[in-house]
């Protein structure tokens, strides 16, 4: 990092001490991070984040582009392990267990904490095989009929079933960008993870498909824990119960969605919400 950027960052955070709001929950949390730092090589991308994600909660993460939302999300199911230069410090707990513990089985962790990526990444396989991929490798079903049902349910939930039901055996790479995004959502929920991490799942969707995905999120939140990154304030306001605001790798403020969008405590949050920044 060159000095000028460092200077601006330090001046921005000259008065910054700690996260404003209720980052830590009173009751039981499904996932929590404690003093989490993330580095790409020498460059630090996340600075000492403490955050709880409650059971049956939809947590929205907002913040300007490049502030580290995706990076933070990816640490929650150890997707950053695949990046050589990425190093993580601090604790991240899932149901009280440290997921960065030596004994943690990364493979089953990722089956429990599923992820929808920022860019749609369907496999070069048929639509059916894309959705069946997870259930197959985890042996979730024993018969073809069961698998058919799992695939259909997942595709219906992601509201793409009607568009693809006649072409399940065709390559998924032939779908449109928005269809691919919904397919990737279907692929993730077909594994029935306990926690679902979504990185801008609606960035390529039209308003109707977006509304359906938001319905899906509401429905899923009855049984699952969801963390969603979004650039749409309206979406954050509609789907989430709590909202976290990130800025240049710091968690600035966390609070109930109502409070964040009506009366934020921190100046940076307010600037962002009201469109004076980012």
């Amino acid at each position: 990092m060159n000095t000028s950027v460092k200077d601006t960052m330090e001046s921005t955070f000259a008065g910054w001490t700690e996260t404003v709001g209720n980052a830590m929950l009173e009751g039981e949390a499904r996932m929590s991070t404690r003093n989490t730092d993330v580095f790409y090589g020498d460059k630090q991308a996340i600075f000492g984040v403490d955050l709880d994600i409650g059971k049956n909660e939809v947590l929205a993460m907002i913040g300007p582009s490049g502030c580290g939302k995706s990076t933070f999300l990816r640490t929650l199911n150890r997707m950053n392990d695949t990046i050589d230069i990425c190093k993580i410090k601090g604790e991240i707990l899932l149901d009280g267990e440290n997921i960065y513990d030596k004994n943690m089985d990364v493979v089953s962790l990722r089956a429990r904490v599923g992820m929808v990526f920022q860019k749609p990444n369907p496999f070069p396989k048929s639509i059916y095989d894309n959705v069946a991929y997870g259930p197959r490798i985890h042996g979730l079903v024993s018969r073809r009929a069961e698998l058919d049902e799992v695939v259909e349910t997942a595709l219906r939930k992601a509201s793409i079933w009607d568009e693809v039901k006649d072409r399940l055996d065709q390559p998924a790479t032939g779908l449109s960008g928005g269809q691919q995004q919904r397919l990737c959502i279907a692929r993730t929920i077909a594994v029935s993870p306990e926690v679902i991490l979504m990185d801008e799942p609606c960035s390529a969707l039209d308003p109707i498909a977006t509304a359906r995905i938001e319905e899906l999120i509401a429905e899923l939140s009855e049984n699952y824990t969801i963390a969603i990154v979004t650039h749409s304030m309206q979406q954050a306001a509609r789907v989430s119960t709590r909202t976290a605001y990130f800025h240049l790798g710091r968690l600035i403020e966390v609070g109930s969605t109502d409070k964040i969008f009506t009366a934020p405590d921190h100046k940076l949050t307010e600037d962002y919400i009201t469109g004076r920044f980012g």
Binding site: N77, V107, R112, M115, P124, K125, R187
Partner: peptide
């Protein structure tokens, strides 16, 4: 083979060898 494909597979809880056999190799 783009890393995003590997990520997709790992993100669903596949192991390295499953990912190689089912995603990387066909691609």
């Amino acid at each position: 083979v783009p890393n995003s494909l590997r990520d997709g597979s790992y993100g669903l809880g596949a192991t390295r060898s499953e990912t190689i056999k089912q995603v990387v190799f066909p691609a």
